[in-house]
Every structure is written in structure tokens, then in C-alpha cells.
């Protein structure tokens, strides 16, 4: 536990957090990667996810894609792109956009899919246009799941951003790789604690946002059942059942 103490001592030493080489600046770089990648990924993934969710077409492709992307070693991709684009922040940022897309796509699509078919039929029966059904019913109801996807991609990027330092991309990984070179375990530990705290803080913030964006009408009767949801039932057409006969 003495080592952990040295790690904490490393964090609180002003020589390590202040200035352009300090961990505060490096942490901002890590956040720049995270939110930059998410912003770009969101522009690409949200419309695509909504399209899949609204039409119900290509959802198996979307799922296979996000399942398969999990196997893509982001570390290798960063290095391969760095060999092509040169060292610096470009290769890591591009990699992070790539890994941020699948969770957001999945969130956007799942958000639409989770909307009860009857609600959509009701909206349509009330005379809403296709566009209104999407923007006024599906988007608000699917927002919590979309935020869930964004949360997941934020966590993946903030974790992976540590590796950017390997190709001179800055961020908190700088301290970790430096520590490996100089065999300075307390420094590696201190930086690791900061990265972990950052990830946990992001997780907390996104969990909060996810709670806040649930529409009020939904909060009123949130399903208490924890069982897995059945895939969405098909809209039924035909003669209404004549009750009481």
C-alpha cells in the first residue's frame, strides 16, 4: 500500500499538475479527444441509427457491425493510422471516431426500437406526418437509450485515449508511457488513478443525464419489471374484435 501512497503523492505534487506539461492540461487533452470524437461520431451515427430504427431495416447488419467492432484492436488501429497520417493527434482522433460510432448507432437504433408500436400507430392515427412521428414521438422516447449509447462510447474513448500518447498524441497516457521508460511505478500508478477517476466521473455524469432526459410521462409509469423486453410486436391489421359477443 506504500506504493499507492507514492502514487497519490505524485498526483498532488504541484510540479506534476501545474503548467503546460502538468496532468491538468493532459486531462483536458483527454477530454478533447473524448468529446471531439463523440461529436463527429454522433453526426454520422445518429441519423443512420434513426433510419435503421424507424424503418426496421438493416438492424441485423447494425448489430453485427457493433458486435464485430468490439473485436477491432483500437491500439493497432491508432498505430496503423499513425504510420499513414504521421504522429500527433490526427491518427488517435480518427481511431476514436471509428470506435465511438457503433455504440451511438446502437443507442439510436435501440431507442427507436424500444418505442411501443401502439404508441407510433396512435401518433399516426392522430394525423402526425412521418416526420412528426419521428421528431415528436420516437426521438423523445428513445433519448435515454441514445444517451446510453453515447455514454458507452464516451467511456470507450476516454479509456482508449490513454493510448494516444504512444504516437505522441498527448493526453494522460504521456505519464504512463514515460513511467514505463523510467521504471517509475508511482507515476504510472498516479496517472492511472487520474484516468480511472476521469472515466468514473464521466460515467456518473452520463448516468445522471440519462435519468434526466426520460420524458415526464414515461417516468410516471416506468416499467418495474426487470425481465428482458420482447422484440417489438408487429402492428396488427384486420377487423376489430367485437367485445361482449
Amino acid at each position: 500500500m506504500n506504493l499507492l501512497g507514492e502514487g497519490i503523492a505524485w498526483i498532488v505534487d504541484p510540479a506534476n499538475y501545474a503548467g503546460p506539461q502538468g496532468w491538468i492540461v493532459r486531462m483536458l487533452e483527454q477530454l478533447f479527444y473524448t468529446f471531439g470524437a463523440i461529436a463527429v461520431a454522433a453526426v454520422i451515427a445518429i441519423p443512420l441509427g434513426y433510419l435503421v430504427g424507424h424503418t426496421g431495416r438493416g438492424r441485423d447488419i447494425a448489430v453485427s457491425l457493433s458486435g464485430g467492432f468490439r473485436a477491432l484492436p483500437s491500439f493497432g488501429v491508432i498505430i496503423l493510422l499513425a504510420l499513414g497520417l504521421g504522429i500527433g493527434f490526427k491518427a488517435p482522433l480518427l481511431t476514436f471516431v471509428i470506435i465511438a460510432i457503433p455504440p451511438i448507432l446502437a443507442g439510436a437504433y435501440a431507442g427507436f426500437e424500444a418505442v411501443d408500436r401502439k404508441t407510433i400507430d396512435a401518433a399516426r392515427a392522430m394525423g402526425m406526418t412521418e416526420w412528426q412521428v419521428m421528431t415528436r414521438v420516437e426521438v423523445p422516447l428513445g433519448l435515454p437509450l441514445l444517451i446510453g449509447g453515447v455514454r458507452s462510447s464516451a467511456l470507450q474513448v476516454v479509456a482508449t485515449a490513454t493510448l494516444a500518447a504512444y504516437v505522441s498524441g498527448g493526453a494522460l497516457g504521456v505519464f504512463i508511457f514515460q513511467a514505463f521508460a523510467t521504471r517509475d511505478y508511482p507515476q504510472a500508478l498516479g496517472a492511472s488513478v487520474i484516468v480511472t477517476a476521469l472515466a468514473l466521473a464521466l460515467e456518473g455524469i452520463f448516468a445522471l443525464i440519462q435519468k434526466l432526459v426520460v420524458p415526464r410521462g414515461v417516468v410516471a409509469k416506468e416499467p418495474k419489471d426487470v425481465r428482458a423486453r420482447a422484440p417489438r410486436p408487429r402492428a396488427t391489421t384486420g377487423i376489430p374484435v367485437q367485445e361482449g359477443k
Binding site: 438492424r59 441485423d60 448489430v63 457493433s66 458486435g67 468490439r70 457503433p102 455504440p103 446502437a106 443507442g107 435501440a110 431507442g111 437509450l145 441514445l146 446510453g148 449509447g149 455514454r151 458507452s152 467511456l155 428482458a228 423486453r229 420482447a230 422484440p231
Partner: peptide, 19 residues
């Protein structure tokens, strides 16, 4: 088969934090 596919979709979505 549909059950298995739905399970796969759900597992991926859960892992992506979108559920």
C-alpha cells in the same frame, strides 16, 4: 432462430450500454 437473433441483438446493445 428469431429468439436467438433477438438475444444476440440484446446482448450487443447491453454491452454498448444502450439498454
Amino acid at each position: 432462430r428469431a429468439t436467438a437473433r433477438a438475444a444476440r441483438r440484446r446482448a450487443v446493445l447491453v454491452a454498448e450500454g444502450a439498454s
